[in-house]
């Protein structure tokens, strides 16, 4: 099969996917159902935030997880009513299944009851975090 057609097809498909992928990383997606799953402070290992809790799931084979963690840990310093929890996905597979987490990093945004309002996959930008935190009532 000496043809450049398969090559062009792969590169075109991968480019379309790559552009879409990059565009959607970090984007805050609101839960479609009114009430997302509810998490307790026992499950996330810290007390819930007064208004918002950000719960980041990470894995060892994930470079952007570290960048996300650095950003969120830093941002939470200036937001007194927001808490931040970091969870190793691999050692919490039960929770990962329950919450249907498919990739890392995934950051959940919980309201004061611990109910998930929405989530972001990939490393969010600072502005995307602010949008997400503001979207939590």
């Amino acid at each position: 099969m000496k043809s450049v057609l398969p090559l062009l097809a792969v590169l075109a498909a991968a480019s379309v996917f790559g552009i879409w992928f990059r565009h959607t990383r970090g984007e805050f997606r609101r839960k479609k159902t009114v009430d997302g799953p509810r998490l307790t402070s026992d499950q996330i290992g810290i007390a819930l935030g007064e208004r918002v809790t950000m719960v980041q799931f990470s894995s060892a084979f994930c470079s952007p997880c570290r960048a996300t963690r650095v950003l969120l840990e830093q941002m939470v310093q200036t937001m007194p009513d927001v808490a931040y929890a970091h969870i190793d996905a691999e050692s919490h597979l039960e929770l990962v299944r329950q919450l249907n987490i498919l990739s890392t990093p995934t950051t959940l945004f919980l309201n004061r009851d611990g109910t998930e309002v929405g989530r972001a996959m990939g490393t969010p930008k600072r502005s995307q975090v602010l949008t997400a935190v503001a979207a939590v009532q």
Partner: peptide, 8 residues
């Protein structure tokens, strides 16, 4: 990042 999408 392939590991991010596949490993979990």
């Amino acid at each position: 990042c392939l590991g991010c999408q596949v490993y979990l």
